[in-house]
Design a protein around this nucleic acid. Structure first.
Length: 585
DNA sequence: GTAGGGTTAG
């Protein structure tokens, strides 16, 4: 056979295989492969690479492996196609093993290999391995390659090393939409929402053209901040720039509006969606759950079942369960667990069982909750014991409370909040000796809790207050407004709940500490600045304390103001002295 | 030929 003949055949095979890859036609590819074998056309390294891509794309790992094993010589493309195939299908560890074999075989990785293998490290949480690969990359010229760099900065960001991610980002000779999105997403995923939004704004001013992934990331960050005005502006950008993958963006928008306390906007988007994914349903259900609107959750879940297009996943089940709990529908939630969640074939995690403990706790069935914990197929964690202890305090059950508290302090001895909860349980029954012992234990073992922080949107800006704050420009006016509110609501029956104060000081000092709580500062600021016709919307990083909750209820009643307070786990919608949480959170 | 970033829950 002449050289020319081989060339013509090669071109034909190449074109046919290329078409098969584009159409994802495994059968077509296998026909070409069979023909190549029949005509004894020696498998060319190049065509072998194409076949591997095709097999991998169709999820046929054995086929890809066979081609790979039978190749007379394996070049970097063949290795990379194999590694990439495993990575794209979620088999990260296999991808990493193959990469090691590649190094041992003496084949040098290229920028394609490094980009994909770093993704595998990130997704497999093999951050140390990623760091070692980074040191290999440093010796090659690929560190400043934009694909390798994006993958590398993503690895650092996802392992919590945002500073190192930033060093990689700033070392890139050029920036594009993916590298910029990776760093924004890095901030957002670490909860550094403000930093994510600031960087987004800066890059936007620099003229980077963003796409749907970037907008989804920044909307997540804005959800965290509950920055409604900015969220609305981003929504405008999204509409004007006619982004593709609009479902993903609509999902993010539903979440953003829900978490900003604007459920009506969220539902409007949901209702108009031409197509929905399970995330769309979960986001909308999550909105109702956080707002404690139990009936809406059940209605929406039923609608999802009736449409019969999308199956519930483990998040759906979790959201419905926690929604029933937040929405005061304990019995419906428990029935849902037994009749739906356990039977629908979806794998349940410890969080689902945690919701059941919460539901039983709210229903006052504490002995039953304890038995449930003993029988569940998971080792109980701090969240489970904490939930039970909280319920014991609300229902004044000391027997179960003591058991839950003991386990809680064993599981999570560093969390000061746990000691406070147990201490309060003892104090509410006048068991001062036991309360004092717990307090002593806390001094020895617990670390300082995260400082309380509340914020409120006014004039397109987020105004942030910390507990005992001295940093806000109008701190004096705000503090004197808090005192004014306190005096006025005391006349209507409010008494400060001094048990919420950790410090060992006299009652007068305790009251002073309470008046400095961040949510009271934010509330006073809202009362000073937000027009009476509008509800006051406040965000808090921790759970709202008992005293601030009661304070807010009295303010809503005495001043006829509608308040919407979002704490770490839910919304408290307070109108005329009543809260949507029914005083259980 | 082979490559990088994403949305819900906890």
């Amino acid at each position: 056979m002449s050289v020319q003949c081989v060339d013509i055949k090669f071109k034909e095979y190449d074109a046919e295989l290329n078409a098969c890859v584009n159409q994802k036609s495994l059968r077509g590819g296998q026909r070409v492969q069979a023909h190549m074998i029949k005509t004894r056309y020696l498998p060319h390294t190049y065509l072998g690479g194409r076949l591997i891509v095709l097999y991998m794309k169709c999820g046929c790992f054995d086929g890809a492996r066979m081609v790979f094993d039978e190749m007379p010589e394996r070049n970097v493309v063949a290795w990379t196609a194999m590694i990439s195939g495993f990575t794209k299908s979620g088999y990260y560890i296999q991808a990493l093993h193959l990469f090691l074999q590649m190094l041992r075989s003496g084949t040098n990785p290229n920028e394609f290999t490094y980009a994909t293998v770093l993704t595998s490290c990130t997704n497999a949480f093999e951050f140390e391995c990623g760091r070692e690969i980074h040191s290999l990359i440093v010796k090659s010229p690929f560190e400043s390659h934009i694909y390798v760099g994006s993958s590398l900065l993503d690895l650092y960001a996802k392992s919590g090393k945002i500073h190192e991610a930033l060093v990689v980002f700033e070392g890139l000779p050029e920036r594009d939409v993916v590298s910029c999105t990776a760093i924004i997403s890095g901030y957002a995923q670490l909860g550094l929402d403000k930093e994510a939004v600031d960087l987004f704004c800066k890059l936007l001013r620099e003229g980077i053209g963003f796409n749907y992934v970037t907008y989804a990331c920044v909307l997540t960050a804005l959800s965290g901040l509950a920055a409604f005005e900015q969220g609305r502006q981003v929504h405008g950008h999204v509409l004007r720039s006619q982004q593709s993958f609009y479902v993903v963006l609509q999902n993010s928008l539903i979440d953003m509006y829900s978490k900003c306390g604007h459920l009506v906007y969220a539902r409007r988007i949901f209702d108009k969606m031409p197509e929905r994914t399970v995330i769309s349903w979960n986001a909308m259900l999550g909105g109702y759950s956080k707002h404690g609107i139990g009936e809406a959750i059940v209605d929406l879940y039923n609608k999802m079942r009736e449409e019969n297009k999308i199956n519930a996943d483990s998040t759906t089940l979790l959201t419905v369960l926690s929604g029933c709990s937040h929405g005061g529908m304990e019995h419906i939630g428990l029935k849902f667990f037994d009749e739906v969640a356990l039977k629908c074939g979806v794998d349940l995690g410890i969080e689902h069982y945690g919701c059941v403990v919460d539901l039983l706790g709210r229903a006052g069935q504490l002995e039953r909750a304890l038995q449930f914990i003993k029988k569940m197929p998971f080792e109980p964690n701090a969240a489970i014991w904490g939930s039970l202890l909280g319920a014991c305090r609300a229902h004044q059950n000391f027997r179960v409370g003591k058991i839950a508290g003991g386990h809680l302090l064993e599981t999570e001895p560093e969390n000061a909040g746990n000691y406070v909860m147990l201490c309060n349980l003892y104090a509410s029954d006048g068991r001062w000796d036991e309360a004092r012992k717990v307090r002593q234990l806390m001094k020895e073992k617990a670390v300082m809790k995260e400082p309380g922080k509340s914020w409120i949107e006014f004039g397109q800006t987020l105004h942030t207050f910390y507990a005992g704050d001295r940093s806000h420009p109008s701190k004096e006016e705000v503090l004197s407004k808090v005192r004014e509110l306190s005096d006025r609501i005391k006349a209507a029956g409010y008494t400060p709940d001094l048990s919420s104060v950790l410090h060992d000081v006299d009652n007068e000092q305790k009251e002073k500490v309470l008046l400095g709580h961040s949510e009271k500062l934010a509330l006073a600021f809202g009362m000073m600045n937000i027009s009476e016709a509008k509800p006051i919307r406040i965000m808090k990083n921790l759970r709202i304390c008992v005293d601030c909750h009661s304070f807010a209820k009295f303010v809503s009643q005495v001043y006829s103001r509608e308040l919407l307070i979002r704490d770490k786990s839910r919304f408290h919608h307070i109108v005329n002295g009543m809260c949507s949480c029914r005083d259980y959170w």
